[in-house]
Write a protein that binds this DNA or RNA. Structure first.
Length: 751
RNA sequence: UGGGGUAUCGCCAAGCGGUAAGGCCGCGGCUUUUGGUGCCGCUAUUCGGGGGUUCGAAUCCCUCUACCCCAUCCA
């Protein structure tokens, strides 16, 4: 766990500390109606991760309340995903469908309480009745049905006596609730459908809002973590649990932002479309952000988990750079997999002065990877190198083989180019080269320095392999439709050449093809006769990048600062205007403060009451407009712990210098909580301000002596540090030192 | 538009009145038989805008703006 906790862990810790819960129970509750993707991985990492971090446990629950879309194959995929990521759910897999009986009993209970009713409006009418976001809805006439009638109807719904859509069970909440979700939400609907687990037993199925909170409760879940789009549903979550008066403790819902990654799509609908329209080869197509896709591509669970860790958890909608994911898989594989040589686009090289053959020793791992292992690499007169590693007209900074530039064959000899052979069209078909017998890798006495070492394979022993080069699925950052698909997301190379050990020894399933990238033996299509490798990710390529980037770097510094349009504030009413005028002219308040007070009649009346007890208009105004305003945001005046007379008193001791502004805030906080008198608080806590320089000075000297680095930085021009020193002094005096005095003194001493 | 959210570097993201963390990307340099890795530097005088309170504001107050979610018998 990193040292900075995310907001969910902060909540969990607080709940543990306060004793709200003894143990933490979370759950990962997917609906089995689609294949899990990396967004699910984030949720899995959060839910299982929190349970692990706080010694609790996490359930895996299929939220299977909609029989028409769900299927066992998805259940399997979901279980598989969790396991692959290395997590264990508590006990057996749970299913909301296992709770149907209990859920139904609770529904009956709500009906008995008069909190739920059977509605028989048709779908369209119901929609009309719901109103809109700006207009309130109205309640169906059926809401007037008696408890007995509702009970009877509900039972018959359950028994399958009615057709789909004939009736629904709704919670009786508030048809004019500003939160649309609270306008008598549906609890049950009739569905004469076969459920993949419950079979044909049920003719009615619970809705998400009814089933989810209660399933959490049944399982003893403490923190029900879901994504942002359920924020509006939280009110129902609470309503159901509270209305049923269930025995505590009960779960609470918390929401985080779902994962978005650029150059790909994450919605079930769009993913399904890609698969159904055969734009990809299936759910496990290595270009897809599905768990199965990543797995087939060769990503490791560690890399995915690491990614989830790196991106953090917050409430702001965001889109993570694909490069972050690429970093994670490279970072993981770098220390794990063997390096081997594979030539994707072969160019024949004949080494004129070499005769016979030999087997060269080559370690699988570079020096900086602490792993053992080596293989033999056959070498002879005819070899293949990567076409890109030779250039007849090299650009500036080219390190590889040229007419005049020698290069090392990795693990072998240094060669120089003698002659180029071309076909009729001018394409290079072969290079005639010469090797230096003194330059053998590991026993080089030639003294030749080369700019680079390139990969190669021996012509006679190399094996032919198929290599599938995958790139981002879409060509734009924020793809909208299939038109944004990247036409080059898959390139298949049928005739790549690989050194024999990879095929014969099979030292691993993942490899780094030296200087190319990381590759994975395809778990499905790979056969000994036709080996297939998937490209997981390329190596970082600062040369390739430099080559492409010919266009001048646009100076991004001078971005157009976008002008922000100021909206109009509603004009003040006549009464407010009059107050405002009085405040600014008679009482000399600044116009901002005057406006805050004038526009809010709770504030203005509180202000005037305070003023009548202490004639200090400006200080009181500032206090009321800034501090009292915060308390009055969601409360009425008579709900406050403190009263105007106490504020008047606070202002008095503030005005006469007994306490500083900083202390005044502290005292105010205390008044908010306890309602005690300010003078008492000041006395009890000994908060009287220290303005005596002879007391303060030695403290400053001490702080300065303790922080020589910061003194230096300050003197070098970092004047922000003044705040640091003042803060330190204030901390040392428990906030009692007069900050103005401290400020002056510190500034003086640091000069 | 009523309600609920969110705004800190190109992308994520800490920060909760006292020195603007960290990661990715990018840019330099060193190391390197991978133009990889590793290491070392650099990259926000400023926190969506404007005001206010304060010795001191990303943090508190006011206000404006932008974006996301909600009117499925989906979850």
């Amino acid at each position: 766990m990193s040292e900075h906790k995310d907001f969910l862990r902060t909540i969990v810790e607080k709940d543990l500390k306060s004793g709200k819960y003894k143990n933490i129970i979370t759950r990962f509750p997917p609906e089995p109606n689609g294949f899990p993707h990396i967004g699910h991985a984030k949720s899995i990492a959060i839910n299982f991760g929190i349970a692990r971090d706080y010694n609790g446990y996490c359930n895996l629950r299929m939220d299977d309340t909609n029989p028409t879309t769900e299927d066992t194959r998805y259940v399997e995929a979901l279980k598989d995903a969790v396991e692959w990521l290395g997590f264990k759910w508590e006990g057996d897999v749970r299913y909301t469908s296992d709770y149907f009986e209990k859920l139904y009993d609770w529904a009956v209970e709500l009906v008995k309480m008069g909190k739920a009713y059977v509605d028989s409006l048709d779908e369209e009418t119901m929609r009309e009745y719901r109103g809109t976001v700006t207009e309130s809805g109205r309640r169906s006439e059926y809401a007037k049905r008696s408890v007995e009638e509702n009970l009877d109807l509900l039972e018959r719904m359950k028994n399958g006596e009615f057709k789909d859509g004939a009736h629904v069970l709704r919670a009786k909440i508030d048809m004019s609730a500003p939160n649309m979700k609270m306008r008598d939400p549906l609890l049950y609907r009739i569905r004469h459908a076969h459920h993949y687990r419950a079979g044909d037993k049920w003719a009615i199925y619970p809705m998400y809002d009814f089933g989810h909170c209660l399933s959490d409760y049944i399982e003893g879940v403490t923190h029900s973590i879901c994504t942002l789009e359920f924020e509006n549903n939280r009110d129902i979550y609470d309503w159901v649990l509270d209305t049923l008066k269930l025995e505590p403790p009960r779960p609470y819902q918390h929401e985080f932002a779902r994962l978005g990654i650029n150059y790909t799509v994450m919605s079930k609908r769009k993913l399904l479309e890609l698969v159904n329209e055969k734009r990809v080869s299936g759910w496990d197509d290595p270009r897809l952000p599905t768990i199965a896709g990543f797995r087939r591509r060769g990503y490791t669970p560690e890399s995915i988990l690491n990614f989830c860790d790196q991106i953090g958890i917050a409430k702001a909608n965001s889109t993570v750079d694909f490069s972050q994911l690429e970093f994670c898989i490279r970072d993981d594989l770098n220390t794990k997999v063997p390096r081997v040589m594979c030539v994707l686009d072969p160019l024949k090289v004949t080494i004129e002065n070499y005769e016979g053959s030999e087997e060269l020793d080559a370690p699988y791992y570079p020096d900086d990877v602490p792993k053992e292992g080596a293989r033999k690499v056959p070498f002879s007169k005819e070899i293949y190198i990567e076409r890109e590693d030779f250039s007849e007209n090299p650009p500036e900074g080219y390190y590889r083989l040229t007419l005049t530039q020698a290069v090392r064959l990795k693990h072998a000899y240094i060669i120089t180019c003698k002659e180029i052979k071309k076909d009729r069209n001018g394409n290079i078909t072969e290079i005639i080269a010469e090797y230096n017998p003194e330059s053998k890798s590991g026993q080089d006495t030639s003294g030749i320095k080369v700019k680079s070492a390139i990969q190669w394979v021996d012509a006679v022993s190399a094996k032919k392999v198929e290599v599938r080069l995958y790139d981002r699925l879409y060509s734009c950052e924020n793809p909208q439709s299939i038109e944004d698909l990247n036409p080059d997301s898959l390139k298949i190379i049928k005739n790549a050449l690989i050194e024999p050990a990879v095929i014969t020894e099979k030292p691993d399933v993942r490899f780094q093809f030296e200087r190319e990238g990381y590759f994975y033996a395809d778990p499905i299509d790979y056969t000994d006769a036709n080996p297939v490798f998937n490209k997981i990710v390329g190596l970082k390529d600062s040369w390739g990048k430099k080559e492409k980037q010919q266009k001048p770097l646009t100076t991004r510094r001078t971005q157009p600062k976008k002008v922000q349009i100021e909206g109009e504030t509603e004009p003040m009413s006549e009464h407010e205007q009059a107050l405002f005028n009085k405040y600014t002219t008679e009482l000399k308040l600044n116009s901002m403060v005057a406006e805050i007070l004038a526009r809010d009649n709770k504030l203005s009346s509180f202000y005037e009451d305070t003023l009548s007890a202490n004639n200090s208009p400006i200080t009181i105004a500032n206090l009321v407009a800034n501090e009292v305003a915060r308390e009055l945001k969601e409360k009425e005046i008579d709900e406050l712990q403190f009263n105007p007379a106490q504020i008047a008193e606070l202002v008095k001791i503030l005005d006469n210098g007994t306490i500083s502004n900083k202390i005044a805030k502290e005292v105010f906080e205390e008044m908010v909580k306890s309602g005690e008198n300010p003078t008492q608080i000041v006395e009890a806590k000994g908060l009287i301000q220290i303005s005596d320089t002879s007391v303060i000075e030695p403290i400053i000297d001490e702080i300065i002596a303790k922080n020589p680095d910061n003194v230096e930085k300050f003197r070098a021009g970092n004047t922000n540090l003044l705040g640091f020193f003042v803060g330190q002094v204030l901390k040392a005096t428990d906030g009692k030192a007069n900050p103005k005095v401290v400020n002056e003194l510190v500034a003086q001493k640091l000069k």
